[in-house]
Amino acid sequence: MTFDIDLIVESLPLMLMGIGITLKLLIVSGLLGLMLAVCLLLMRISGKWYLSFPAQVYIYIFRGTPILVQIFIIYYGLPQFEAVRDSILWPILREPMGCAIVALTLNTAAYVSEILRGGVLGVSKGVLEAGSALGMSARQKFIYLTAPIATRLALPAYSNDVISLLKSTALASTITIADMTGIARTIVADTYAPYEIFISLAIVYIIFTFGIQKLFGAIERYLGRYTEREG
């Protein structure tokens, strides 16, 4: 078996044309997912069962089912309901891109809210008591003490989830989206050269992951400056 370098040189630029779509999936669902995750977190730690219970059920369902199945349910399943086709969400759910972003967002939110909760639980009780003793309200303690400390604590696990999300975006190719993986699959279908194409695709993802790691490393160092004795 030979490794066709020319084919890689030829198809790499084609695959990289999908970079925009991959980035869009990653950034849009990453940000929306983070916002939803914060809402879920606040519901879970609200101490009110009618908020915390639905959040728990949501997290249980989305962590308990494969993301590919979630994408299929949203893309193939939802349009069967007339109510969905008549709803204001239809313009989003009509498009594969909209469906992929919705699925990735809903999925990542479930994981990220648990990651954030881990951070919140890691904030020392004594620090919050000191806040109470100074007369700070629950809201002030959350904003000025819990949130910044928990963010720092949750960051390593969160960066893990962002990397995981990057790779989940490849699943969007199963519902006709021409992201990097989607383009690669088209090229493979034309050339019957899965080896060269998919290996070069894998390398592109690895380079991406490296970039994300570096970015979060820098954020961690910045947010963690108070954990260094010399500084």
């Binding site: 020392s124 004594g126 620090v127 008591e129 000191a130 910044p148 720092r152 108070y226």
Partner: peptide
């Protein structure tokens, strides 16, 4: 407090 409980991030 016994354990100071300063805000570590400030």
């Amino acid at each position: 407090f016994q354990s100071f409980n300063l805000f570590p991030h400030m």
